[in-house]
């Protein structure tokens, strides 16, 4: 299932709609990178509210997405991870330690706004 990416100001918002295949994930990675560069985005929000299983591959890909976006000077926030999914992830040993997380879209936006405010000072 393709992940739609919306532009909001200088941010990109990618909202996962349901289960993702490996191919979907790789496609998402490519699409996000391409757009971050082309649109000079300062931040990316990846909304995982609709995702009900996250295995090692998905987790690794998300980490890679965040890393690559950082290298292009933008920040990534993962939002919407469900309680059950979060618990399964940490049991699997996937803590996404290097990645910023927030409760939902609103919190994710607040985080990015805060960050760009700090950068301007």
């Amino acid at each position: 299932m393709e992940v739609p990416i919306l532009k909001q100001g200088s941010y990109l918002i990618a909202t996962v709609q349901g289960a993702l295949t490996d191919a979907d994930l790789l496609e998402l990675r490519a699409a996000l990178l391409e757009r971050v560069v082309r649109m000079r985005s300062q931040g990316v929000i990846l909304d995982l509210t609709a995702l009900d299983v996250m295995d090692s591959f998905a987790s690794r890909t998300i980490r890679e997405i965040a890393d690559m976006i950082r290298l292009r000077g933008a920040a990534t926030v993962i939002v919407g991870i469900q309680p059950e999914v979060a618990f399964a992830m940490v049991q699997l040993g996937l803590t996404l330690e290097e990645v910023t997380t927030a409760l939902d879209l609103e919190e994710g936006l607040a985080y990015l706004n805060q960050k760009s405010k700090e950068a301007r000072i």
Binding site: D52, V53, M54, D55, Q82, P83, E84, V85, F87, A88, M89, Q91, L92
Partner: peptide, 9 residues
């Protein structure tokens, strides 16, 4: 639902 997520993972 928590266990189902664990099993599916």
């Amino acid at each position: 639902s928590g266990d189902i997520t664990l099993i599916a993972t």
